[in-house]
Write a protein that binds this DNA or RNA. Structure first.
Lengths: 132, 132
DNA sequence: TCAGATAGTTGCATGATGCATGCATCATAC
DNA sequence: GTATGATGCATGCATCATGCAACTATCTGA
Protein backbone atom coordinates (compact mmCIF):
# COMPACT_ATOMS: atom_id res chain seq x y z
CA UNK A 1 0.00 0.00 0.00
CA UNK A 2 2.76 2.44 0.87
CA UNK A 3 4.58 1.90 -2.39
CA UNK A 4 1.32 2.25 -4.28
CA UNK A 5 0.66 5.56 -2.59
CA UNK A 6 4.26 6.71 -2.79
CA UNK A 7 4.10 6.36 -6.55
CA UNK A 8 0.91 8.38 -6.78
CA UNK A 9 1.51 11.28 -4.47
CA UNK A 10 -0.26 14.47 -5.47
CA UNK A 11 0.85 18.06 -5.22
CA UNK A 12 0.09 18.14 -1.54
CA UNK A 13 2.03 16.14 1.02
CA UNK A 14 -0.09 13.70 3.03
CA UNK A 15 0.27 15.76 6.18
CA UNK A 16 -0.88 18.87 4.38
CA UNK A 17 -3.94 17.12 3.07
CA UNK A 18 -4.79 15.93 6.56
CA UNK A 19 -4.51 19.49 7.82
CA UNK A 20 -6.74 20.83 5.08
CA UNK A 21 -9.31 18.12 5.76
CA UNK A 22 -9.45 19.03 9.42
CA UNK A 23 -9.68 22.71 8.73
CA UNK A 24 -12.44 22.10 6.20
CA UNK A 25 -14.30 20.09 8.84
CA UNK A 26 -13.79 22.88 11.38
CA UNK A 27 -12.73 20.15 13.79
CA UNK A 28 -9.89 22.16 15.20
CA UNK A 29 -8.86 25.70 14.66
CA UNK A 30 -5.74 25.68 16.80
CA UNK A 31 -2.31 24.73 15.59
CA UNK A 32 -1.81 22.88 18.84
CA UNK A 33 -4.97 20.83 18.35
CA UNK A 34 -4.07 19.98 14.79
CA UNK A 35 -0.69 18.75 15.96
CA UNK A 36 -2.24 16.58 18.63
CA UNK A 37 -4.85 15.28 16.22
CA UNK A 38 -2.21 14.27 13.71
CA UNK A 39 0.26 12.93 16.23
CA UNK A 40 2.86 15.50 15.26
CA UNK A 41 5.10 17.81 17.19
CA UNK A 42 3.64 21.33 17.54
CA UNK A 43 6.73 22.72 15.86
CA UNK A 44 6.11 20.55 12.83
CA UNK A 45 2.52 21.69 12.61
CA UNK A 46 3.64 25.27 12.93
CA UNK A 47 5.87 24.79 9.93
CA UNK A 48 3.23 22.98 7.87
CA UNK A 49 0.81 25.79 8.52
CA UNK A 50 3.42 28.36 7.59
CA UNK A 51 3.98 26.53 4.33
CA UNK A 52 0.27 26.25 3.59
CA UNK A 53 -0.26 29.89 4.45
CA UNK A 54 2.62 30.90 2.19
CA UNK A 55 1.02 28.95 -0.63
CA UNK A 56 -2.22 30.75 0.05
CA UNK A 57 -4.20 27.68 1.04
CA UNK A 58 -4.66 28.52 4.69
CA UNK A 59 -5.20 31.83 6.29
CA UNK A 60 -4.28 32.76 9.82
CA UNK A 61 -5.07 35.78 11.82
CA UNK A 62 -4.65 36.59 15.48
CA UNK A 63 -7.35 35.36 17.80
CA UNK A 64 -8.86 38.36 19.60
CA UNK A 65 -9.93 36.13 22.49
CA UNK A 66 -6.45 34.76 23.08
CA UNK A 67 -3.68 36.82 21.65
CA UNK A 68 -1.16 34.00 21.86
CA UNK A 69 -3.24 31.94 19.48
CA UNK A 70 -4.46 32.35 15.96
CA UNK A 71 -7.64 31.61 14.11
CA UNK A 72 -7.06 29.20 11.27
CA UNK A 73 -9.16 28.73 8.19
CA UNK A 74 -9.09 27.64 4.60
CA UNK A 75 -8.84 30.21 1.86
CA UNK A 76 -10.86 29.78 -1.28
CA UNK A 77 -7.73 28.37 -2.94
CA UNK A 78 -7.40 25.97 -0.03
CA UNK A 79 -10.91 24.71 -0.50
CA UNK A 80 -10.31 24.25 -4.18
CA UNK A 81 -7.05 22.41 -3.63
CA UNK A 82 -8.79 20.08 -1.23
CA UNK A 83 -11.62 19.45 -3.66
CA UNK A 84 -9.12 18.69 -6.36
CA UNK A 85 -7.15 16.35 -4.12
CA UNK A 86 -10.30 14.51 -3.19
CA UNK A 87 -11.24 14.12 -6.84
CA UNK A 88 -7.79 12.76 -7.55
CA UNK A 89 -8.23 10.16 -4.84
CA UNK A 90 -11.66 9.20 -6.02
CA UNK A 91 -10.20 8.62 -9.47
CA UNK A 92 -7.46 6.53 -7.96
CA UNK A 93 -9.93 4.29 -6.18
CA UNK A 94 -12.24 4.17 -9.15
CA UNK A 95 -9.43 3.08 -11.42
CA UNK A 96 -7.94 0.59 -9.07
CA UNK A 97 -11.12 -1.10 -7.96
CA UNK A 98 -12.84 -0.80 -11.31
CA UNK A 99 -13.58 -4.48 -11.64
CA UNK A 100 -14.69 -5.12 -8.08
CA UNK A 101 -18.31 -6.04 -7.58
CA UNK A 102 -20.32 -3.15 -6.17
CA UNK A 103 -21.28 -5.12 -3.07
CA UNK A 104 -17.68 -5.74 -2.11
CA UNK A 105 -16.70 -2.14 -2.59
CA UNK A 106 -19.46 -1.15 -0.21
CA UNK A 107 -18.38 -3.76 2.27
CA UNK A 108 -14.82 -2.53 2.08
CA UNK A 109 -15.89 1.08 2.54
CA UNK A 110 -18.00 0.13 5.53
CA UNK A 111 -15.30 -1.93 7.19
CA UNK A 112 -12.62 0.67 6.57
CA UNK A 113 -14.86 3.28 8.11
CA UNK A 114 -15.29 1.20 11.19
CA UNK A 115 -11.59 0.40 11.25
CA UNK A 116 -10.89 4.13 11.30
CA UNK A 117 -13.27 4.50 14.21
CA UNK A 118 -11.55 1.72 16.12
CA UNK A 119 -8.14 3.23 15.49
CA UNK A 120 -9.40 6.62 16.55
CA UNK A 121 -10.80 5.37 19.82
CA UNK A 122 -7.61 3.41 20.46
CA UNK A 123 -5.56 6.59 20.42
CA UNK A 124 -3.71 7.40 23.60
CA UNK A 125 -3.31 3.73 24.36
CA UNK A 126 0.39 3.60 23.58
CA UNK A 127 1.18 0.02 22.66
CA UNK A 128 -0.33 -2.78 24.62
CA UNK A 129 -1.69 -3.12 28.15
CA UNK A 130 0.21 -0.14 29.53
CA UNK A 131 -0.99 2.62 31.85
CA UNK A 132 -1.14 1.38 35.50
CA UNK B 1 -4.45 5.57 10.13
CA UNK B 2 -1.13 7.27 9.60
CA UNK B 3 -1.20 9.01 12.95
CA UNK B 4 -2.18 5.77 14.63
CA UNK B 5 0.78 4.03 13.05
CA UNK B 6 3.12 6.96 13.56
CA UNK B 7 2.48 6.77 17.27
CA UNK B 8 3.22 3.06 17.38
CA UNK B 9 6.30 2.73 15.28
CA UNK B 10 8.58 -0.09 16.33
CA UNK B 11 12.36 -0.33 16.35
CA UNK B 12 12.42 -0.89 12.61
CA UNK B 13 11.42 1.74 10.10
CA UNK B 14 8.55 0.73 7.81
CA UNK B 15 10.83 0.44 4.80
CA UNK B 16 13.19 -1.81 6.71
CA UNK B 17 10.38 -4.10 7.71
CA UNK B 18 9.23 -4.35 4.11
CA UNK B 19 12.74 -5.31 3.07
CA UNK B 20 12.99 -7.98 5.74
CA UNK B 21 9.62 -9.39 4.74
CA UNK B 22 10.67 -9.70 1.13
CA UNK B 23 13.97 -11.26 2.02
CA UNK B 24 12.23 -13.71 4.32
CA UNK B 25 9.90 -14.65 1.49
CA UNK B 26 12.87 -15.06 -0.87
CA UNK B 27 10.86 -13.02 -3.36
CA UNK B 28 13.86 -11.06 -4.48
CA UNK B 29 17.49 -11.39 -3.66
CA UNK B 30 18.74 -8.39 -5.59
CA UNK B 31 18.99 -4.88 -4.24
CA UNK B 32 17.67 -3.63 -7.56
CA UNK B 33 14.60 -5.87 -7.38
CA UNK B 34 13.88 -4.83 -3.83
CA UNK B 35 14.05 -1.20 -4.87
CA UNK B 36 11.65 -1.74 -7.74
CA UNK B 37 9.33 -3.79 -5.59
CA UNK B 38 9.15 -1.05 -2.98
CA UNK B 39 8.98 1.80 -5.43
CA UNK B 40 12.22 3.28 -4.13
CA UNK B 41 15.34 4.58 -5.81
CA UNK B 42 18.14 1.99 -6.00
CA UNK B 43 20.38 4.32 -4.03
CA UNK B 44 17.88 4.41 -1.20
CA UNK B 45 17.65 0.64 -1.15
CA UNK B 46 21.39 0.43 -1.15
CA UNK B 47 21.51 2.58 1.94
CA UNK B 48 18.75 0.68 3.70
CA UNK B 49 20.55 -2.59 3.06
CA UNK B 50 23.81 -1.10 4.31
CA UNK B 51 22.05 -0.05 7.49
CA UNK B 52 20.42 -3.43 7.97
CA UNK B 53 23.70 -5.21 7.30
CA UNK B 54 25.49 -3.00 9.78
CA UNK B 55 22.89 -3.89 12.37
CA UNK B 56 23.46 -7.55 11.61
CA UNK B 57 19.96 -8.23 10.31
CA UNK B 58 20.86 -8.82 6.69
CA UNK B 59 23.88 -10.46 5.25
CA UNK B 60 25.32 -9.80 1.84
CA UNK B 61 28.04 -11.56 -0.04
CA UNK B 62 29.19 -11.33 -3.61
CA UNK B 63 27.29 -13.34 -6.15
CA UNK B 64 29.70 -15.74 -7.83
CA UNK B 65 27.49 -15.84 -10.92
CA UNK B 66 27.50 -12.06 -11.37
CA UNK B 67 30.27 -10.23 -9.66
CA UNK B 68 28.51 -6.88 -9.87
CA UNK B 69 25.68 -8.21 -7.78
CA UNK B 70 25.36 -9.59 -4.31
CA UNK B 71 23.39 -12.35 -2.72
CA UNK B 72 21.13 -11.05 0.02
CA UNK B 73 19.74 -12.96 2.93
CA UNK B 74 18.46 -12.63 6.46
CA UNK B 75 20.72 -13.44 9.35
CA UNK B 76 19.38 -15.29 12.34
CA UNK B 77 19.06 -11.93 14.10
CA UNK B 78 17.16 -10.65 11.08
CA UNK B 79 14.70 -13.50 11.24
CA UNK B 80 14.22 -12.92 14.95
CA UNK B 81 13.71 -9.20 14.49
CA UNK B 82 11.09 -9.88 11.85
CA UNK B 83 9.31 -12.41 14.06
CA UNK B 84 9.28 -9.90 16.88
CA UNK B 85 7.97 -7.14 14.64
CA UNK B 86 5.22 -9.39 13.38
CA UNK B 87 4.24 -10.29 16.94
CA UNK B 88 4.16 -6.60 17.79
CA UNK B 89 1.78 -5.97 14.94
CA UNK B 90 -0.41 -8.89 15.79
CA UNK B 91 -0.70 -7.49 19.31
CA UNK B 92 -1.58 -4.12 17.88
CA UNK B 93 -4.39 -5.55 15.81
CA UNK B 94 -5.55 -7.82 18.59
CA UNK B 95 -5.74 -4.92 21.01
CA UNK B 96 -7.36 -2.52 18.62
CA UNK B 97 -9.98 -4.83 17.19
CA UNK B 98 -10.55 -6.70 20.44
CA UNK B 99 -14.27 -6.11 20.48
CA UNK B 100 -14.99 -6.73 16.82
CA UNK B 101 -17.04 -9.78 16.00
CA UNK B 102 -14.95 -12.59 14.61
CA UNK B 103 -16.88 -12.64 11.33
CA UNK B 104 -16.13 -9.01 10.61
CA UNK B 105 -12.48 -9.39 11.36
CA UNK B 106 -12.32 -12.20 8.84
CA UNK B 107 -14.20 -10.12 6.30
CA UNK B 108 -11.83 -7.23 6.82
CA UNK B 109 -8.80 -9.48 6.48
CA UNK B 110 -10.20 -10.98 3.30
CA UNK B 111 -11.04 -7.64 1.74
CA UNK B 112 -7.73 -6.10 2.70
CA UNK B 113 -5.96 -9.04 1.13
CA UNK B 114 -7.82 -8.52 -2.08
CA UNK B 115 -7.26 -4.79 -1.92
CA UNK B 116 -3.53 -5.47 -1.71
CA UNK B 117 -3.81 -7.69 -4.77
CA UNK B 118 -5.64 -4.99 -6.68
CA UNK B 119 -3.07 -2.38 -5.73
CA UNK B 120 -0.27 -4.72 -6.68
CA UNK B 121 -1.70 -5.40 -10.11
CA UNK B 122 -2.34 -1.68 -10.62
CA UNK B 123 1.36 -0.94 -10.25
CA UNK B 124 3.01 0.71 -13.20
CA UNK B 125 -0.24 2.39 -14.12
CA UNK B 126 0.88 5.91 -13.13
CA UNK B 127 -2.22 7.88 -12.32
CA UNK B 128 -5.27 7.61 -14.45
CA UNK B 129 -5.93 6.71 -18.06
CA UNK B 130 -2.38 7.43 -19.24
CA UNK B 131 -0.19 5.32 -21.53
CA UNK B 132 -1.16 5.93 -25.18
C1' DT C 1 37.47 -5.95 -28.60
C1' DC C 2 34.51 -2.46 -27.81
C1' DA C 3 30.06 -0.03 -26.94
C1' DG C 4 26.24 -0.01 -24.25
C1' DA C 5 23.56 -1.95 -20.48
C1' DT C 6 23.34 -3.20 -15.61
C1' DA C 7 24.40 -3.69 -10.24
C1' DG C 8 25.61 -1.27 -6.72
C1' DT C 9 27.68 2.83 -4.22
C1' DT C 10 28.56 7.62 -3.01
C1' DG C 11 28.18 12.91 -3.14
C1' DC C 12 24.97 16.35 -2.77
C1' DA C 13 20.71 18.69 -2.03
C1' DT C 14 16.00 18.61 -0.22
C1' DG C 15 12.31 18.14 2.84
C1' DA C 16 9.89 16.42 6.96
C1' DT C 17 10.57 15.68 11.52
C1' DG C 18 11.67 16.11 16.81
C1' DC C 19 13.84 18.34 20.63
C1' DA C 20 15.31 22.31 23.07
C1' DT C 21 14.70 26.97 23.56
C1' DG C 22 12.69 31.53 23.42
C1' DC C 23 9.00 34.90 23.45
C1' DA C 24 4.53 36.56 24.25
C1' DT C 25 0.35 35.84 26.60
C1' DC C 26 -2.88 33.78 29.78
C1' DA C 27 -4.44 31.97 34.42
C1' DT C 28 -3.92 31.66 39.15
C1' DA C 29 -2.24 32.30 43.77
C1' DC C 30 -0.85 35.43 47.03
C1' DG D 1 -1.58 44.25 41.61
C1' DT D 2 2.15 41.36 41.05
C1' DA D 3 4.73 37.18 40.78
C1' DT D 4 4.72 32.31 39.21
C1' DG D 5 3.72 28.75 36.33
C1' DA D 6 1.23 27.08 32.13
C1' DT D 7 0.12 27.59 27.31
C1' DG D 8 0.42 28.79 22.14
C1' DC D 9 3.40 29.42 18.69
C1' DA D 10 7.93 30.14 16.31
C1' DT D 11 12.92 29.31 15.47
C1' DG D 12 17.66 27.04 15.67
C1' DC D 13 19.71 22.87 15.20
C1' DA D 14 20.45 18.11 14.24
C1' DT D 15 18.76 13.82 12.16
C1' DC D 16 17.02 10.88 8.81
C1' DA D 17 14.92 9.11 4.50
C1' DT D 18 14.83 10.15 -0.02
C1' DG D 19 15.95 11.26 -5.19
C1' DC D 20 19.09 12.61 -8.73
C1' DA D 21 23.51 12.58 -10.84
C1' DA D 22 27.86 10.67 -11.33
C1' DC D 23 31.01 6.92 -10.67
C1' DT D 24 33.17 2.07 -10.72
C1' DA D 25 33.02 -2.60 -11.82
C1' DT D 26 31.06 -6.02 -14.40
C1' DC D 27 28.28 -8.21 -17.89
C1' DT D 28 26.31 -8.76 -22.76
C1' DG D 29 26.16 -8.73 -27.48
C1' DA D 30 27.77 -7.20 -32.01
Amino acid sequence: MSRFLREREGDLAPTDVAVLVRLAGQQCTRSRDLARAEGLDPSTMSRRLASLAERGLVDRHPDPADRRAQVLGLTQAGREALTQERARRVDLVTDTLADWPEAEKEQLADLLGRLADSLESARGTPTSGQSP
